[in-house]
Write a protein that binds this DNA or RNA. Structure first.
Lengths: 168, 168
DNA sequence: ATATATTTTCAATAAATTTTGAAAATTCAA
DNA sequence: TTGAATTTTCAAAATTTATTGAAAATATAT
């Protein structure tokens, strides 16, 4: 397979993959393009390589920056802005986990603790099932939260090394 | 807060939550409703409680069954079918992990190993960055794959107990 | 200051996804 | 069998989400 085809296939698959992970297709495609670009590239490069509009590139690169996955680079003497992505996949993964935890898991846990305190007779089976379900999810979520916190702070070699040894 | 309001809020939030996880809103809402229903319920119950059409309920319950999260129950003497959801959150989580691994991670890893074998000069920096990126993702994915396999097979108390002790 | 290059915004448009509902298929009791 | 109850299917409609592109804002060079 030629590099050009392989690139196209990677970008397309990474885009499709992204949609399963709460990230939109184009954002994931831009991310893919930046991951395989050795040097920083401009909005125009992205527009051309992915055949998408300027506005689209602008919005999605900004989202990627908000996610902490992409950086804006200013090259002295160049008028245009350049973009580059973090290449260390461990850092990419922990950054995504960190953001999703903040955006999704933490608010959900907060809501669940509110819902657990409902009025009503615990002997009523509807009340009981509701409270039990909420408590179960909250407990599980709380534990996941702790594990993810360790992971976010951890160094890759230590984390995966220890974990894989532990589970061998 | 009253049970009725708490239920509505849980269903609505679980639905919104689902959309971030590659599951459609209605599917997640039906799942939420089943999680808090102590006894099996019918298509008509779901239609009524969530104010959605029969076709919608039918398609989404089927998807939930395909995901292994919901079961069809036949009650002797009853003409209608009943549905019930697995209530153990650990089992729900491992089932989702199992399915997503099969549907997303495994195909991605397969593609990456193909893409790693591109033709081209490794000294060319475009080729090098591409190969390095793909290799990095593949390595990380492969390790995640192993950890998830252990998790899927593990018993909850053992897994989380060990993990939390390990990371304390 | 002015002209020019570049980025950002956002209303309009397009595309993708979800939902409906009625017809077809299936199931089951009599 | 027949017919009523129930489930399934799927084309059309509704909704949601993503994309465009041109105008406005901003930044930079002269």
């Amino acid at each position: 397979m030629k590099l050009t085809d392989a690139k196209a296939q990677f970008i397309s698959s990474w885009g499709a993959f992204g949609t399963h992970w709460g990230i939109n297709r184009t954002m994931a495609q831009i991310h893919a393009l930046l991951l395989i670009s050795p040097d920083p590239i401009t909005q125009d490069d992205i527009m051309e390589q992915l055949s998408i509009s300027r506005g689209n590139v602008n919005m999605n690169t900004r989202d990627l920056i908000d996610w902490g996955l992409v950086e804006r680079i200013l090259i002295p003497g160049e008028r245009k802005e350049f973009f580059t992505a973090e290449k260390d996949i461990w850092k990419v993964a922990t950054q995504i986990i960190k953001e999703r935890k903040k955006r999704e898991l933490d608010p959900m846990l907060k809501l669940l603790s509110q819902l657990e305190q409902i009025e009503g007779d615990k002997k009523d089976k509807d009340v009981k099932q509701f409270v039990d379900t909420i408590a179960g999810i909250r407990k599980f979520g709380g534990q996941a939260d702790k594990v993810l916190d360790v992971m976010i702070k951890a160094d890759e070699s230590w984390f995966l090394g220890s974990l894989l040894k532990f589970f061998k």
